[in-house]
């Protein structure tokens, strides 16, 4: 269960936000634990607590700390919490906040309906991510991409490929490709049994294979992408796919 912390300096807007949130969390297992205008209260509160929270932070706080600095402090205590920023002006900083403090979302205040839908979206996203974390061991792989850790569902992955010589691995999914540092050997031990090493530099999801060309030693994935099979692993791959 994750509790909610709100930090907003404008009393009216805080009231409004509280009412929206209480309305929205009926469907979820969350509750408001703290609502304040002082960022130091937030720090004190999480200092004395070990659990992680969902934070709604205003960017301008009328204090010696602004929302972004507060978020950075929060991250030193609570690495798993979810941070959502609220702001009055539309200067765009979503990606910056995502990369620096792993912010979940960035909501521009003003339009109350938009605020509502955005908050609902956030709760849905948090709910899904909490569920995913529970089942993580079974069907997800976590990879470090830059500052962030992203989780990939095994069912979305087509194959892993070594790229270049520098321990770079490129993971190909239906939507694109992502690179990270690692070795195929380590990945082999963490993925499910559906994955099979077909070549020195390929580890494929056997469920996503469309066809195998035994003569040319090439396999085609469901999206049309091609991988090479080496003779050594071809027989094993065939028995694996037939069973």
């Amino acid at each position: 269960m994750n509790n909610i912390i709100i930090c907003e300096d404008n009393a009216n807007q805080r009231k409004e936000l509280e009412s929206i949130i209480t309305n929205e969390i009926k469907n979820f297992d969350f509750k408001i634990e703290l609502s304040t205008d002082n960022p130091h209260d937030v720090i004190n509160h999480i200092d004395n607590s070990t659990s992680s929270f969902i934070y709604f932070l205003d960017v301008d706080l009328n204090s010696d700390l602004d929302g972004f600095q507060l978020a950075q402090l929060i991250r030193t205590h609570d690495t798993n919490g979810y941070i959502i920023f609220l702001t009055g002006h539309a200067e765009l900083t979503l990606l910056t906040f995502q990369y620096k403090v792993q912010a979940l979302d960035y909501i521009v205040k003003g339009d109350i309906n938009l605020l509502k839908t955005k908050i609902t979206d956030c709760f849905n996203a948090i709910h899904n991510s909490l569920n995913a974390a529970k089942t993580k061991i079974n069907n997800k792989i976590s990879i470090d991409v830059g500052n962030n850790i992203i989780f990939l569902d095994f069912n979305d992955i087509l194959f892993f490929e070594t790229s270049g010589k520098e321990h770079k691995i490129s993971v190909h999914t239906l939507s694109g490709q992502t690179e990270f540092y690692g070795t195929l050997k380590n990945i082999e031990t963490t993925v499910s049994t559906d994955f099979y090493k077909i070549h020195r530099s390929y580890l494929v999801n056997t469920k996503k294979i469309k066809s195998i060309d035994k003569r040319k030693m090439i396999i085609e994935m469901v999206n049309g992408e091609m991988c090479y099979v080496s003779l050594r692993y071809l027989r094993g791959l065939l028995t694996k796919c037939i069973h």
Partner: peptide, 20 residues
């Protein structure tokens, strides 16, 4: 990137009609 820069990662995605 593959040839010269081992310190550079390139990620490409298409999600909801946004090319990233």
């Amino acid at each position: 990137i593959d040839k010269r820069y081992k310190n550079v990662l390139l990620n490409t995605k298409i999600e909801n009609c946004i090319f990233k």
